[in-house]
Design a protein around this nucleic acid. Structure first.
Length: 299
DNA sequence: CACCAGGCAAACC
DNA sequence: GGTTTGCATGGT
């Protein structure tokens, strides 16, 4: 992904099989989302890197993507960081042509890839955020999961006020590592989930768990490493591999949403074995099959 | 009022 | 060892 430096903004050609408007649909799916703001066809987001907070926007026009820096901070380190973040966030670097090839021949995907053509994985590049979101969302409905995330961010995160809007930034592990667990429980995290989140925050603060170290590993090694962490089971491991590590073969097969989406096509609820069988045809692209199935659930 | 949600670990046979 | 249970609350 080549982002061209235009001083106060970056520009890149929109990749093929990418529809910015599908990304926007995903980003707008909850009105409780406070980690970004969508206005019209533009996304606004704030990020912290070291000792600076950067506010930027992303939009698309005439087949080109633009990242605009809004609060006067755009040195090279910031530009590189934000360009990398956005590239991962929207999975822009992936050649998804092979997925479309197989999906067009697949009975469960062929209509979906036509209807939602250009949909990509919208990731969670921040590892700690990915863990917290996945753990918070275990075994509860998405509405309540968003409520938990919003409370967590508003209680522990930092914010940037800019031209009448508030931009929240997800808290760093070091902040969460030292909070009283009772405060997290008061946000209506279960005791277990609060423990998981604090354990992970401590590991990340202490450096015994880090993105750099994990990035070196292959899929099976990485999954094994994640499964050894308390609170991370098979579903969460694959969810994080898909959303943070951008692994197209990650597949949270026990996911309730996958089961529900396939149930609508089959008119009965498939077992995990039946899904594994169906998914043989998706080899290497299970994460992409998953997001199209999820997409079919919100009309 | 049941039962299910983008599950998991600990307790229990 | 495989199976059951508690967690938290909102939606249907």
């Amino acid at each position: 992904m080549q982002w061209e430096d235009k001083q106060t903004y970056l520009e890149a050609g929109s990749p093929s099989h990418f529809r910015f408007d599908e990304t926007l649909v995903f980003l707008k799916r909850s009105d409780q989302e406070i980690l970004h703001l969508v206005k019209g066809r533009t996304v606004f987001k704030a990020l912290r890197l070291e000792d600076e907070v950067v506010l930027f926007s992303i939009t698309e026009e005439d087949g080109k993507l633009y990242i605009q820096f809004l609060n006067g901070k755009f040195n090279k380190a910031i530009k590189d960081f934000v360009a990398d973040y956005v590239t991962k966030w929207f999975d822009l670097e992936r050649d998804v042509e092979p997925f479309y090839q197989l999906a067009q021949q697949d009975p469960y995907l062929k209509d979906l890839v036509k209807t939602y053509s250009g949909l990509r994985v919208v990731g969670i590049p921040d590892l700690f955020e990915a863990f917290v979101w996945a753990i918070a969302g275990q075994q509860i409905n998405l509405t309540f999961a968003y409520t938990l995330k919003r409370r967590f961010v508003q209680r522990f995160g930092e914010k940037l006020d800019w031209e009448g809007e508030t931009y929240w930034i997800f808290p760093q592990p070091a902040v969460i590592a030292d909070v009283n667990i009772e405060i997290v429980r008061d946000l209506q995290f279960s005791s277990r989930k609060a423990e998981y989140v604090l354990d992970i925050a401590k590991k990340m603060r202490d450096g015994t768990l880090s993105l750099q170290e994990l990035e070196e590993k292959s899929y099976p090694e990485l999954k094994k490493a994640l499964l050894s962490i308390r609170g991370i089971g098979a579903w969460t491991a694959d969810y994080v591999l898909m959303k943070c590590f951008q692994m197209p073969n990650a597949f949270p097969i026990a996911d309730a949403g996958i089961h529900q989406a396939l149930k609508q096509q089959l008119s009965w609820k498939p077992t995990v074995e039946e899904i594994a069988n169906i998914a043989k045809n998706w080899a290497g692209w299970e994460a992409y099959a998953t997001i199209f199935l999820w997409r079919s659930l919100y009309e």
